[in-house]
Design a protein around this nucleic acid. Structure first.
Length: 482
RNA sequence: GGCCCUAUCGUCUAACGGUUUAGGACGCAGCCCUCUCAAGGCUGAAAUACGGGUUCGAUUCCCGUUAGGGCUACCA
């Protein structure tokens, strides 16, 4: 049994598209599940689209996502180099081989000429494809042009009137008529290969066993199949993944929202949540479980359970999933994330002990979607309330309230190193003494210490901020709200 | 236009001819819990695009229609 080798082969655009992340993930999961090899290959064959630093950013975000590859440009491997721009001579020699075998040919047309040709074809309402005018050139003419340095490309010679078929793991048998296929350019006039040539050559040379990629590649797969046949190479298994969609069902794109994994990292999404979420876009375990760690996904994954239809990228569910993963995350890990957020917040110059922050995390973790929310939803853990929510004041702060709160303050004053339960007992005693319900004190108390009407249990808040701070806040509220 | 792919609740999806009054999840609504907000529990509204076949029986198989999408570059 030959070993499984798969690759994620992005072109370095400067960011990682979430669709790309999903493709990378499925390749990773399949490789790990099959105990195979997961390879990163950089497809940087378009000089006009060169983006400085793009590869570094790509690798950086891939690391963040946790998809560790076994071979790649930065870590090397037995099939190096893994950067197509460093493999130019290889593609040249294979293209040359095809020319010699009569399976590819030189063409000298300019962009303008091709453009005119296409316009003409559109006018005649016939399929737009290269009309093979270069094939009319004699061998001598071709040699002459080559010698005099006329810019040229190498095109593949698609055979006439044959059917090209292949079996796709997710789609079953797919057939194309060769008449529909264009004589694809293999080597561009700048000497770089196109995707089609480079991809096939590298997949063969790197011994890729399964090509797992987006559905947008399905229409060009017959060209690739032809190329494998031209070279006499064994075909890999193909698996074309359903597309990720915008809410309007078009292919997920910028313009309609965030598509870069970096955007989601920036917004505070956890990598495990994003991974879990995209894993379920086009695949499911067959039962009703939805929450998975990366390792659990590896155990469950199979290409057979990948669906065929496109999936809308639904942010609402991602948010829910992020909250779920946040709840499960060890408090220590959230702590370091919280510290980073604090360092970027208005409270950056204030020092909080780890223990204090850990308490805040425990109090808030059930009510947040992002780590950031700890700061945004409960600023009162980081500074005394600056304002009091007018709606809550209106509802909870009555004429008699200042006196009640003052009584409560006095009761709290008498406590020695109080714990949560001590505050609670003191409040109950005070309420009884005052002859009012607990709610008559609890709500104003919450308002006084937090400025809001929502949040963790009020006694938890008191235990966290401490007695002195509690008293200060009660006094301040009595003063401000009376 | 041509070629190709796809088609179950608003969204992600389960059901691989009968166990289905089509299941789960997100979101939405209501109730419970409750010091508030969450979380949690319960309940509810919500789908097999349409038309033909095949079959004793179709969400499931086939054909067509419709709809959506992808591709149609010297981009990937």
């Amino acid at each position: 049994m030959s070993s499984v080798r798969v690759r994620f082969a992005p072109s370095p655009t400067g960011y990682l598209h979430v669709g790309g992340l999903r493709t990378a993930l499925y390749n990773y999961l399949f490789a790990r599940k099959q105990e195979g090899t997961f390879i990163l290959r950089i497809e940087d064959t378009d000089q006009s689209r060169y983006v400085p630093d793009a590869e570094r950013k790509l690798i950086d975000i891939l690391k963040w996502s946790g998809l560790q590859y076994d071979e790649g440009p930065d870590i090397g491997g037995p099939k190096a180099p893994y950067r197509q721009s460093e493999r130019l001579a290889i593609y040249q020699s294979y293209a040359q081989q095809l020319v010699e075998a009569g399976k590819a040919y030189y063409a000298f047309d300019t962009a303008e000429e091709l453009e005119a040709m296409r316009r003409e074809q559109e006018k005649l309402r016939i399929p737009t494809k290269y009309d093979r005018r270069a094939l009319k050139l004699s061998a001598e003419e071709v040699q002459a042009k080559l010698r005099s340095g006329v810019p040229h490309v190498i095109r593949m010679r698609v055979p006439d009137d044959t059917t090209i078929a292949f079996d796709d793991i997710v789609r079953g048998r797919v057939e194309f008529s060769s008449d529909q296929l264009d004589d694809q350019v293999l080597i561009k006039s700048d000497g770089y290969p196109t995707y089609h040539l480079a991809n096939v050559v590298d997949d063969h040379l790197m011994e890729i066993s399964h090509v797992i990629r987006g559905e947008e590649w399905l229409p060009s797969t017959p060209k690739h199949v032809l190329l494998y046949q031209f070279f006499g190479w064994e075909l890999p298994q193909f698996a074309h993944l359903p597309l990720l969609l915008n809410p309007d069902k078009s292919k997920l794109s910028k313009r309609q929202g965030d598509v870069a994994v970096e955007d989601y990292r920036e917004k505070g999404y956890l990598p495990e949540a994003l991974i879990n979420f995209v894993a379920l876009l086009g695949w499911n375990p067959g039962d009703e479980r939805e929450l998975f760690t990366l390792d659990e996904l590896v155990k469950e994954f199979s290409l057979e359970r990948v669906g065929k239809s496109g999936a809308v990228f639904n942010i609402e569910k991602l948010k829910w999933m992020n909250a779920e993963h946040l709840r499960k995350k060890p408090a220590r890990e959230i702590l370091s994330m919280l510290k980073e957020e604090l360092a970027r917040s208005a409270y950056k110059s204030i020092h909080f002990s780890d223990n204090y922050l850990l308490n805040v995390i425990e109090a808030m973790r059930e009510r947040i979607g992002f780590v950031r929310d700890i700061i945004d939803k409960s600023p009162y853990f980081f500074q005394p309330p600056l304002t009091y929510d007018p709606d809550v004041v209106q509802k909870r702060w009555k004429k008699e309230t200042p006196a009640h709160v003052a009584a409560l303050r006095d009761a709290f004053e008498r406590l020695i190193s109080p714990k949560k339960e001590d505050y609670e007992a003191a409040l109950h005693a005070t309420a009884q003494h005052l002859g009012v319900g607990n709610g008559q004190l609890i709500h104003p108390l919450r308002l006084a210490v937090s400025g809001t009407g929502a949040g963790p249990g009020v006694f938890d808040i008191l235990a966290i901020i401490g007695k002195d701070e509690t008293i200060r806040r009660l006094n301040k509220a009595i003063e401000t709200l009376s």
